[in-house]
Nucleic acid binder design. Structure first.
Length: 312
DNA sequence: GCTAATGATTACTA
DNA sequence: TAGTAATCATTAGC
C-alpha cells in the first residue's frame, strides 16, 4: 500500500499528468525556479520519470496479461482434470488465489524496484537542487527594491513574501533566506564601515525594527550616523557639509558623485531618489536625521561602500 | 587560480 | 517559529 501511495505521489502510478509529477514541480520550485537551466533540469527529471513510468506500466501490463493467461491455462487444466476426478469450486478458487498471490508478489517486486529507481532519480535531482544558482537580475532588483524601500522595517510579512516570491519566480523560503542574508550583511557592512571610521563619528547602534525590537525600540535608529549615510541631496552636490567628515570621506563622496553621474543611479526602473531618499524612508517612520543610506548604493552595494555588497 | 559575492544550511536565541 | 550569526559551497569576475 505504501509503495502504491509513493508511486501515485511520484506520478508513476495513476493517470499521467503531462508526463511529470507534482513532485517534479515541487522540486523544481524548490530548486530556485528562476533560471532557465533549472527548467532544463526539470524537463530532464520529467523525461526520466516518464521513462520509468513507461517501463513500469509496460511491465505491469505484461504481468497482468501473464497472470490472466496463466489463470486461464490452469482453469483449462482443472477443467480437463474434472473429467477424471471431481473438482470442487473451492479448489478452483484456491488455485486461482495461489496464482494471483504469486503474481501479486511479483508485482510488488516490480513496484519496489520502480520505487528504488524513482528514489535514485529524485536523490540525484535533489543533489542538483543544492547547487546554488544566482537569482536573475530582475528578481534581485525586486528584492532590493523591497528591502531598501522598507529599510526601517525590512521584515516582509508572509503575504509580502509570497508576493515577492511570485514576482521573482522563487520560493517563499528563498525570499526568507534572501532577507535573512540581506539584513545581516547590510548590518555587517555598516558595522564594518563604522569600525573603520572609529573615532570619527559617535558610536551608533544600528538596529532594524526587528520583531524582537518592536516592543522596546522605536525604530531603526540611525541618528548620529555621521558621514556614513549621506543624503541624496548631499551626494548630488549642494548641501554636503564636508566639515563634518574627514577628507577621505570627501573623496569618497567625489567618487560616488562620479558613479552617480556615470550610472544615473540605482536602476533603470527606480531612481535613486525613489529608492533611498530620506523622505521616502522617514515617511516609513524609519530613518532619523541624516541617517540615510546613500542613494549611490546600488542594490548590490551596501551603504557607504562603493563596491562591497553587504547584500545578497 | 584567486577572491568577492551570494544562496543555502545550521545552530542558536528570544 | 522567525530571525540572527556563522559558515559552507557555488558562482562569477578578474
Amino acid at each position: 500500500m505504501r509503495l502504491d501511495n509513493m508511486l501515485l505521489a511520484e506520478g508513476v502510478a495513476g493517470p499521467e499528468k503531462g508526463g511529470g509529477s507534482a513532485a517534479a514541480a515541487a522540486a523544481a520550485a524548490a530548486s530556485g525556479g528562476a533560471g532557465s537551466d533549472n527548467s532544463v533540469e526539470h524537463s530532464d527529471y520529467r523525461a526520466k520519470l516518464s521513462q520509468i513510468r513507461q517501463i513500469y506500466h509496460t511491465e505491469l501490463e505484461k504481468y497482468e496479461q501473464a497472470c490472466n493467461e496463466f489463470t486461464t491455462h490452469v482453469m483449462n487444466l482443472l477443467r480437463e482434470q474434472s473429467r477424471t476426478r471431481p473438482i470442487s469450486p473451492k479448489e478452483i478458487e484456491r488455485m486461482v488465489g495461489i496464482i494471483h498471490r504469486k503474481f501479486s508478489s511479483i508485482q510488488m517486486q516490480l513496484k519496489q524496484s520502480t520505487c528504488e529507481a524513482v528514489m535514485i532519480l529524485r536523490s540525484r535531482f535533489l543533489d542538483a537542487r543544492r547547487k546554488r544558482r544566482n537569482f536573475n537580475k530582475q528578481a534581485t532588483e525586486i528584492l532590493n527594491e523591497y528591502f531598501y524601500s522598507h529599510l526601517s522595517n525590512p521584515y516582509p510579512s508572509e503575504e509580502a513574501k509570497e508576493e515577492l516570491a511570485k514576482k521573482c519566480g522563487i520560493t517563499v523560503s528563498q525570499v526568507s533566506n534572501w532577507f535573512g542574508n540581506k539584513r545581516i550583511r547590510y548590518k555587517k557592512n555598516i558595522g564594518s564601515k563604522q569600525t573603520e571610521r572609529g573615532a570619527m563619528a559617535p558610536q551608533n547602534k544600528m538596529q532594524f525594527l526587528s520583531p524582537q525590537n518592536l516592543g522596546s525600540s522605536s525604530s531603526f535608529n540611525m541618528s548620529n550616523s555621521g558621514d556614513l549615510f549621506m543624503s541624496v541631496q548631499s551626494l548630488n552636490g549642494d548641501s554636503y557639509q564636508g566639515a563634518q567628515v574627514g577628507a577621505n570621506v570627501q573623496s569618497q563622496v567625489d567618487t560616488l558623485r562620479h558613479v552617480i553621474s556615470q550610472t544615473g543611479g540605482y536602476s533603470e526602473t527606480l531612481s535613486a531618489n525613489q529608492m533611498y531618499s530620506p523622505q521616502g524612508i522617514s515617511a516609513n517612520g524609519g530613518w532619523q536625521d541624516a541617517a540615510t543610506p546613500s542613494s549611490v548604493t546600488s542594490p548590490t552595494e551596501g551603504p557607504g561602500s562603493v563596491h562591497s555588497d553587504t547584500s545578497n
